[in-house]
Computed example of a mutant assay.
Amino acid sequence: MKTIGEASTSAEVRAEAALTAVAEWTGKQIGFASASPGIASPSHRGVDSEAWLVAVDQSSPAYFLKIVSADQKAFVDLGAVFDAASVAAELGCAPSPRHLARDAGAIVFDLLPPGWKTARMDDLRRTEIMEQVIALKKAIHGSRPFALSWTVFDRIRVLDNACKAAGVDRPDDLWWMLDGVGEIERAITAAGYDARPSHADGLASNVMISQDGAVQLVDFDEARNVDPLYEIGILLNEAFPFEEEMRPALEMFEGSFRQASLDRCRVYAVADDLMWGLWGMLMNSTSARGDIEFLKYAQWRLLRCRMALRHPDFELKLRRL
């Protein structure tokens, strides 16, 4: 673990700048070490930021420093992230954010104690884990509204325009996928929904599990006021390959199974796949981080989007919303 003044790489210099920006730590002995690097495939984890373990006046780390990567700053509002994570922490759903270093593009969080691990998709399939994840997300849905609101369709338009501006090589059938997701947006808008404050992240890697099976949520970069069924839809899309497996989890969320809710979850998942496919294509063309498999991730998400749009029940799902 290095201390302030020992940085030898550009990443370590950024970490030092973020840590020295914390006024409460002035004059204290600060140590820092790199946490796990980000990967996009086969597991999407830590791609949005540089992560550091931080110790203050002690040998073992007690804090987690997150510095938003330069290629993600356009998509992350640090103030909104800090606010949403604070609300979740007050509810007991997430580690507490402690310091916002806006100029350094960083937030310092409490570090979960030793023994906590990053969830995998097979962890989410365990009933006792899924129950807890859904309970935490529902708790956040009942909190005060967050600062920002958006829909997955808003983000698709932003990313599509960014891809065009960057001259990204687009799949020949992208227009068809955009048209199909446009049908989804029109159907959901016509059916209506109530936006609620949400973690709005379905990735297994943003769920943490302790040795005794407790659960916490991390990474509030996507937290917004959204349709709660969008949040549940992308969670189910991450955890289960088949709709029959999704039914019990949806029953946990709503108290009883409703076909219209499952249909909404499924079509939201289609839109989410397109969104992340566009993001992966954009990052592949514009990010300086050539060691991350952005294109592979984009191709996987776009493949799943295509499969869902071509499914014989796609139009039926829209009519049942």
Rank of each mutant, 00 (worst) to 15 (best):
D172P: 06
L302R: 03
A249P: 00
C305L: 04
M252E: 09
S210Y: 02
I209G: 04
V207L: 09
Q259H: 13
L309H: 02
E251P: 08
H199R: 05
D219C: 08
G280T: 04
L274I: 00
M177V: 00
E244L: 13
G213E: 03
I234P: 00
P312Y: 14
E238I: 02
L262N: 01
A288M: 15
I292H: 08
R247Y: 01
H199L: 02
A223G: 12
F257K: 07
P171W: 00
S198H: 07
M246E: 15
A223N: 12
W300K: 12
A308H: 10
A249W: 01
E254M: 12
D201W: 08
D219H: 05
G182F: 08
Y193R: 11
D221C: 12
L203D: 06
M208D: 09
C265T: 05
D313V: 08
C305F: 02
R310E: 15
A269I: 05
A195C: 08
E183A: 11
D263R: 06
D219N: 07
C305M: 01
E245M: 14
C265Q: 10
R310T: 11
Q216H: 09
M275D: 03
G233Y: 06
L203K: 15
A214E: 14
F242N: 10
L309K: 02
F240V: 08
E222N: 13
E243H: 12
W176I: 10
F242H: 13
E244Y: 14
W279I: 10
P228T: 13
D194P: 01
R304N: 05
S285V: 11
D172G: 07
Q259V: 13
M281G: 07
N225E: 07
R264K: 15
F294L: 07
